[in-house]
Simulated assay, not measured.
Amino acid sequence: MNGQQEYAVWADGLRKRYGETCALDGFDLAVRRGTVHGLLGPNGAGKTTAVRILATLVRLDGGRVTVAGVDPARDPQGVRRRIGLTGQYAALDESLTGRQNLEVFGRLFRLGGRRAGHRAGQLLEEFGLTEAGDKGVDEYSGGMRRRLDLAVSMILTPEVLFLDEPTTGLDPRARGEVWDTVRTLVAGGTTVLLTTQYLDEADRLAAHITVMDRGRAIADDTPGGLKNTVGGDRIEVVTAHARDLRRVAAVIARVAVPGAEPETVERERRVHAPVDDRVAALTEVARTLRDEGVQVEDLGLRRPSLDDVFLRLTGHRTEAAR
């Protein structure tokens, strides 16, 4: 890797220890400008430590970093002027209105009263909160609070925005609202580094994904590229009765990719395996199971998911998928 201008965030060989614990063990990262880059990993993988180092909140023990073209170790204030950071929980004062929250943060960022008020109005409009701007934050829905929290992080129009699990605890509608907001920010030129436990979130938003484990990057590719490492299409059958699982596995084995053994998940009464010719495989399995009188609750084809990738790379599923 190199620290060329095409990267908004670049890290080479980051190391960080907390006593006997090695949080980062040679972590590398390259985030292209104007994109959403997903950072995935199990709990304890080092994601939070990496983000804290990049955001100048923690000093690294070794390695090299540039954020928006600035070295955090040499010029932390220069980095802070160029970034925004939104944590897992909204940092808002519920006793104030949305507009007042933005104005307070604007003053904290030394915009002055008039500029802070003007910027608050701009952000309320940009984040679709104008009508709610003069309502108390305690009246906001979860999605509105998160959008206001994002607006706070954008007061200084940062080049790079760090989002740490931005939709944790939100319902599907609110999550969709936040996703739309993130896409709008990126369309305006902001680079986003996203950490999340929701793999569908990374799949929908991120142009590139880095998977971490034990303080290192263990995979780095586009969502599609990562899925291709698991394999192509898979045929999947859910039986009505557990007693038929062996028969189903034998049928699927005939159409599976050579050398691939069907996998059986007994508690779900599900059997699946990779296939090359998806249409022929589906037709053959459906006909054979019908002829053998096997009752099926579900039969279909599916593409690998990021959850499959995560399971293959780390040995277990994310917390959100359990």
Rank of each mutant, 00 (worst) to 15 (best):
T196M: 02
T21S: 11
R302F: 08
E268K: 13
L289G: 03
D25N: 15
V237H: 04
D244I: 03
L92V: 09
N228H: 13
T318S: 13
T56A: 07
G231E: 10
L163G: 00
E165G: 04
R52C: 04
C22P: 08
G224K: 03
V104M: 12
G189C: 08
R99M: 02
N43A: 01
L306G: 05
G84A: 06
I155M: 10
R119K: 12
G225W: 03
R115Q: 14
Q295H: 15
D12L: 10
P262M: 06
E319D: 12
T35N: 00
D138M: 09
T181Q: 12
A281Y: 13
Y198D: 02
A281G: 11
A260E: 12
T86S: 15
L282G: 08
V51P: 02
R107A: 12
G34Q: 06
V9C: 04
P262I: 09
V182A: 02
L108K: 07
K227G: 03
L199K: 01
T168N: 04
R278Y: 10
R204C: 00
T167Y: 01
Y140F: 15
G293H: 14
R81C: 02
L205G: 07
V178G: 09
M1G: 11
A240N: 04
D12Q: 14
L124H: 08
T184L: 13
R59A: 14
P158T: 10
